[in-house]
Simulated assay, not measured.
Amino acid sequence: MTKLTLGSHPFLLGFEQLERMVERTAKTGNDGYPPFNIEQASEHRYRITLAVAGFTEDDLSITVEERQLMIRGRQPAEDEGRVFLHRGIAARQFQRTFLLADGVEVSGASMENGLLHVDLKRAVPKAEVQTIRIGKAYQKEVSDV
C-alpha cells in the first residue's frame, strides 16, 4: 500500500510547496517557550500573544519570510555581579515560528504588561469566475517529401 501525501494526491494540484512548508515548520525548535495564545478576533482577524516577561521591545524581532512568521527574543547578558538565590524567571533567547496561509498578513504588533501581541489579518479574496475557451488541438503538419 502506497502512502498518499498532500503533494501527491491527484486532486490537489500545486500544493507541493505547502507540504514542504509544513515539514519545515514541524522541524523548527518550538520547545514551549515562551508560552503563547492564538485567538480569533473576528472572522478575518487573528492575534498571537506571547508571554515575554523581562524582554523589552528592543530585545524582540518579528519577521515574515516565505509565509513563515518568526518571532525571536534575545536579552543581553546582565548577570555580572548579580547573585541569584533562586532564578525562576527565564532569561533565555527564543525563536517561535508560525506558518501563515496565503493572504494572511501581519497588521501590527504591540507590547503590554509583558505580553507581545502580533495582529494578523486575512485578505478576503474576491469571488471570481473564469471562463475557459475551448480551442482546437495543436496539429502538426506533415509535408510529403
Results as ranks from 00 to 15, higher is better:
residue 10 P to M: 03
residue 108 G to E: 01
residue 87 R to H: 14
residue 98 F to E: 02
residue 27 K to M: 15
residue 118 V to P: 04
residue 98 F to H: 10
residue 116 L to H: 02
residue 32 G to K: 11
residue 91 A to V: 13
residue 106 V to Y: 04
residue 102 D to T: 05
residue 71 I to C: 07
residue 10 P to G: 05
residue 110 S to V: 02
residue 55 F to M: 06
residue 64 V to G: 06
residue 84 F to M: 09
residue 101 A to C: 00
residue 98 F to D: 04
residue 59 D to T: 07
residue 55 F to N: 06
residue 28 T to E: 15
residue 22 V to W: 08
residue 88 G to M: 11
residue 109 A to T: 09
residue 17 Q to L: 02
residue 104 V to M: 08
residue 67 R to G: 03
residue 36 F to I: 10
residue 12 L to V: 08
residue 91 A to M: 13
residue 106 V to N: 09
residue 21 M to A: 03
residue 33 Y to M: 11
residue 60 L to Q: 04
residue 36 F to D: 00
residue 40 Q to I: 00
residue 84 F to L: 09
residue 16 E to R: 00
residue 11 F to A: 07
residue 53 A to G: 13
residue 91 A to H: 07
residue 55 F to P: 08
residue 14 G to A: 05
residue 115 L to Y: 08
residue 61 S to E: 12
residue 56 T to D: 08
residue 54 G to Y: 04
residue 40 Q to F: 03
residue 43 E to I: 10
residue 29 G to V: 11
residue 39 E to G: 09
residue 79 D to H: 08
residue 119 D to K: 05
residue 86 H to E: 15
residue 84 F to V: 13
residue 52 V to D: 07
residue 47 R to A: 14
residue 100 L to F: 01
residue 23 E to S: 13
residue 31 D to T: 09
residue 102 D to N: 07
residue 75 Q to Y: 06
residue 105 E to Y: 04
residue 73 G to R: 04
residue 82 R to E: 06
residue 105 E to D: 12
residue 63 T to R: 15
residue 58 D to K: 13
residue 85 L to H: 05
residue 110 S to Q: 11
residue 42 S to H: 01
residue 116 L to T: 03
residue 119 D to A: 14
residue 21 M to T: 02
residue 98 F to Q: 02
residue 83 V to P: 14
residue 46 Y to P: 07
residue 100 L to A: 05
residue 47 R to N: 12
residue 103 G to E: 08
residue 60 L to D: 00
residue 83 V to M: 14
residue 116 L to F: 03
residue 89 I to L: 10
residue 70 M to Y: 14
residue 48 I to Q: 04
residue 98 F to R: 10
residue 9 H to V: 09
residue 114 G to P: 13
residue 26 A to W: 09
residue 29 G to C: 12
residue 62 I to C: 00
residue 58 D to H: 10
residue 78 E to W: 09
residue 111 M to F: 04
residue 12 L to D: 01
residue 25 T to D: 02
residue 17 Q to C: 00
residue 120 L to P: 10
residue 114 G to V: 14
residue 85 L to V: 11
residue 118 V to S: 01
residue 54 G to K: 03
residue 75 Q to E: 13
residue 82 R to V: 09
residue 110 S to M: 11
residue 82 R to S: 13
residue 28 T to I: 06
residue 29 G to A: 15
residue 104 V to F: 02
residue 19 E to M: 00
residue 110 S to H: 07
residue 83 V to F: 14
residue 18 L to P: 01
residue 34 P to R: 02
residue 73 G to Y: 03
residue 40 Q to D: 00
residue 41 A to H: 00
residue 43 E to Q: 15
residue 117 H to R: 13
residue 39 E to S: 12
residue 110 S to L: 02
residue 106 V to R: 15
residue 16 E to D: 06
residue 103 G to F: 11
residue 77 A to S: 13
